[in-house]
Amino acid sequence: MDLKRLIGKAKRTAEDTLDKRGGKDALKEDFRELKDIAAGEGSVKDKAKRAADAVKEPGTTKH
Rank of each mutant, 00 (worst) to 15 (best):
L27E: 13
E41R: 14
T17W: 04
G23D: 10
A54N: 06
T61C: 06
V44L: 09
M1L: 10
T61Q: 10
D46G: 11
G59V: 14
K47L: 01
K9P: 00
R32E: 12
G8A: 13
E15C: 01
L27W: 09
K62H: 10
S43E: 03
K28A: 11
D2W: 01
K11E: 04
K47C: 00
R50I: 02
D19F: 07
A14Y: 13
T60P: 01
D16T: 12
A52S: 08
D19I: 09
D30S: 10
E57F: 11
K9F: 10
K56M: 08
T17C: 00
E33D: 02
D36E: 12
L6I: 14
P58W: 15
R50W: 02
K49Q: 07
D16L: 13
L6W: 07
G8Y: 02
D19L: 11
A39P: 00
A38V: 15
A54G: 05
S43V: 05
R12F: 03
A39L: 15
K45F: 09
K24E: 09
K45L: 09
E29M: 13
R12Y: 02
T60N: 12
G42P: 12
D36R: 15
A39C: 03
D46P: 00
K56V: 05
A38C: 14
S43P: 03
K49D: 07
A39Y: 02
K62S: 09
E57K: 15
L34Y: 02
K49M: 06
G42C: 11
V55H: 03
L18I: 07
K11L: 03
L34W: 01
E33V: 00
A51F: 01
H63E: 15
A26G: 07
D19K: 12
D30P: 00
M1E: 03
G40A: 08
K35S: 06
K56R: 08
I7L: 11
R5N: 15
D2S: 12
F31M: 14
R50A: 15
V44M: 08
G59Q: 12
K62A: 09
M1G: 13
A26R: 07
G8P: 01
G59W: 12
D30M: 11
G40K: 05
E41H: 13
K24C: 02
A54I: 03
E57M: 14
F31L: 15
R32K: 13
A48W: 01
A51R: 02
R12T: 11
A51V: 01
K45T: 10
K4L: 14
D53P: 00
L6T: 12
